[in-house]
């Protein structure tokens, strides 16, 4: 098995020809431009040396929450709410029983299939996050809504898997909200497991970022149906090359939790910060990887940015990925 697989997490900055007209394009024109942007982004990834290309930067999606929610019946959007600074997302209000109106990601998958690439990973916004980021004006309990989202995601993954064929499909459940309510980890566990329940032929990933306490997630690892944990670390690590890698203190805790599971579990290590333009030099990234390797076998370590790179320009995003690949290659050589 390949060691230290490099992968991206999901989003990448859209080219201006798509971003500037994203909401106003007619469907056929949108499809053409989103396809073009996907292929261009994949080519950029390939130029950087990235091994797993995800879905080519989520060019079909404006935003990770709005995209699925706009394809679900029973949700009304009254307008955007702030995420940070001047960044907003359209927060939906659940006003009725929810059901899928159409597939969330089939169009994206078809483009990847047509391109002949196999090294893909499909990010899907997770049920707990969808629940937590929505106004619940209909279901009696938060767990009911999370489970209802879990069922919809299960349907979606089944449809994607059927379209993909026999080969293993990597699916990444994005759960940035997973640890935001410490007393709701049972809801996270149940709803995520519901999302992948009974589906064969998939490799399950989860992506969590900017958690105030990853320990909450680590506690439920043994009972989660997840094989790869793609987590953010670089954002909390100093950018100086020297010194202890204090942002990576959770790696050891992760390994301890993973070893208590009967499942073979891997870690996706966030090595570049997606919220700053600073291009981490290969030596810094290398130090971060080597720090993690003190605790984890290289076959169980994947290398990725902290989160989607959509917040950076395409040029900065490319440079960050390129250095990530260089660092990975140097580490591998030295192993």
């Amino acid at each position: 098995m390949a060691e230290l697989i490099t992968q991206e997490i999901g989003s990448f900055r859209k080219p201006s020809y798509l971003a500037s007209r994203f909401r106003s394009l007619k469907s056929s024109e949108f499809l053409n431009l989103a396809k073009r942007a996907t292929i261009e982004t994949i080519e950029l990834y390939e130029k950087s040396g990235l091994m797993n290309i995800g879905v080519g930067g989520e060019m079909f999606r404006w935003e990770m929450y709005e995209h699925p929610v706009s394809r679900i019946n029973g949700i009304k959007v009254f307008g955007p709410v702030r995420s940070f600074d001047n960044r907003y997302y359209n927060k939906g209000s659940v006003v009725d029983d929810i059901s899928r109106a159409s597939s969330f990601h089939l169009d994206e998958l078809e483009v990847l299939k047509e391109s002949g690439r196999k090294n893909i990973k499909i990010p899907i916004t997770g049920p707990y996050t969808l629940m937590d980021w929505s106004f619940n004006d209909h279901y009696n309990k938060r767990e009911e809504l999370a489970l209802a989202f879990g069922k919809l995601i299960n349907e979606e993954i089944r449809e994607l898997k059927a379209a993909w064929g026999n080969e293993t499909l990597q699916v990444q459940i994005d759960e940035p909200a997973a640890t935001t309510h410490p007393d709701e980890m049972e809801i996270v566990r149940e709803s995520v497991n519901e999302s992948v329940k009974g589906i064969d032929g998939i490799e399950t990933h989860i992506h969590v970022c900017y958690s105030r306490d990853y320990g909450l997630l680590f506690k439920i690892i043994p009972s989660l149906e997840i094989s790869v944990y793609n987590l953010e670390f670089a954002n909390r690590d100093p950018t100086s090359i020297e010194g202890e890698r204090e942002g990576y203190a959770n790696v050891q805790r992760f390994i301890e939790a993973a070893e208590s599971s009967t499942r073979k579990i891997s870690l996706g290590l966030g090595v570049t910060d997606v919220h700053i333009d600073f291009i981490e030099p290969p030596q810094l990234i290398r130090n971060r990887i080597e720090y993690a390797l003190k605790f984890i076998d290289p076959a169980r370590l994947r290398i990725n940015p902290d989160c989607g790179l959509r917040t950076r320009s395409r040029e900065v995003g490319f440079e960050k990925l390129k250095n990530m690949v260089i660092a990975r290659n140097e580490v591998l050589k030295a192993l």
């Binding site: 940070f84 600074d85 937590d132 940035p176 909200a177 935001t180 900017y210 105030r212 954002n235 919220h275």
Partner: peptide, 27 residues
């Protein structure tokens, strides 16, 4: 830009660190 930033940036000796989740929210 957030509940504390203009105050933080008006006092010498305070700089801005990483983006951090505000309580149990998506903000």
């Amino acid at each position: 830009y957030d509940l504390i930033r203009p105050v933080a940036l008006s006092i010498e000796g305070i700089t801005l660190g990483p983006l951090t989740r505000y309580k149990e929210t998506n903000t």
